[in-house]
C-alpha cells in the first residue's frame, strides 16, 4: 500500500541546506502496524509528514494507495488526507472553540457530508473510543487521555485506510498512554494500517514492525 523509494527531504534554513531525509526506501502492506523509531532530529517526523501527504519530498518516489504522491497538487493532497488518512498528534490539536462532537465532525465537513449524517457518524466514532457520554464537552473540559481519544475518533471518523500517529502517548501518563495504544491495536485489527512515530520504546514494542531511523537514513527494519 505504501512504497517509498529513495525518499529525500532537504529543508532550507536561510542559506544553509539541512538534509532531514537522505534517501529512505521501504514498503508497508495493508493491515500492518508499524512503529517508526529514532532519536529526536533523526528525520522521523519529516518522514511522517511525507507519508501523511502534509509535505512533498525533495526527491525520490512515494506511492500511496497506487498513486504517486509527488505528482499531486495541493488540492489533491488535501483530498487524499481528507479521505484516506487519519492523523493523531502528540499535542492532540483539537480546536478549543468546538465541542468534541464538532471536532470529530471536521474531516466530514471538508468532505461535504450533510449535517445529519456527519453527526451520526461522529457520535458513532466517539462511542467507539468510549466517549459516547462526552460529545458536547469542550476540549478544556476533558482530560488529556480523553482529548487524545477525541483526536483518534476524529482520525477514524472518515474510515481512512491509514492511521498516522505522531508521538501519540508523548503528552500522556503511562496508564492513559497504554489505553491509547490498546485503541490503536483494536483499530489495526479492524483492518486499518497504523503507522506510529515515537521515541518511546514501550510504545513502539506494541507494534508488529519496527523501522529505525537515524540521521535521515533507515537503520533497521525488524518484524516482531
Amino acid at each position: 500500500m505504501i512504497k517509498v523509494e529513495n525518499l529525500r527531504k532537504t529543508y532550507r534554513a536561510g542559506l544553509v541546506e539541512v538534509p532531514a531525509l537522505r534517501g529512505v526506501s521501504f514498503e508497508v502492506d495493508e493491515r500492518e502496524y508499524v512503529a517508526i523509531v529514532g532519536p529526536s532530529g533523526s528525520g522521523k517526523s519529516t518522514l511522517m509528514h511525507l507519508l501523511g501527504c502534509l509535505d512533498v519530498p525533495s526527491a525520490g518516489r512515494y506511492i500511496f494507495d497506487g498513486v504517486e504522491v509527488s505528482t499531486l497538487g495541493e488540492d489533491e493532497l488535501a483530498r487524499v488526507r481528507n479521505r484516506k488518512i487519519g492523523f493523531v498528534f502528540q499535542g492532540f490539536h483539537l480546536l478549543p472553540r468546538l465541542t468534541a462532537l464538532e471536532n470529530v465532525e471536521l474531516p466530514l465537513v471538508y468532505r461535504g457530508v450533510g449535517a445529519a449524517t456527519r453527526r451520526k457518524r461522529a457520535i458513532r466514532a466517539l462511542e467507539l473510543v468510549g466517549l459516547g457520554a462526552r460529545v458536547q464537552h469542550y476540549p478544556n473540559e476533558l482530560s488529556g487521555g480523553e482529548q487524545q481519544r477525541v483526536a483518534i475518533a476524529r482520525a477514524m471518523v472518515g474510515d481512512p485506510i491509514l492511521l498516522l500517529a505522531d508521538e501519540p502517548t508523548g503528552n500522556l501518563d503511562s496508564r492513559t498512554g497504554a489505553d491509547v495504544l490498546d485503541l490503536f491495536r483494536r483499530i489495526n485489527e479492524t483492518g486499518c494500517t497504523v503507522i506510529m512515530v515515537t521515541h518511546n520504546m514501550t510504545a513502539a514494542s506494541r507494534a508488529k514492525r519496527l523501522l529505525k531511523i537515524r540521521d535521515g537514513l533507515l537503520e533497521g527494519d525488524e518484524r516482531v
Binding site: L54, E74, R81, N82, F87, H93, L95, L106, R154
Partner: peptide, 10 residues
C-alpha cells in the same frame, strides 16, 4: 494547520 491536515483545501 489542523484544518488543512484533516482535508481543508486552500
Amino acid at each position: 494547520g489542523l484544518r488543512k491536515a484533516v482535508g481543508a483545501t486552500r
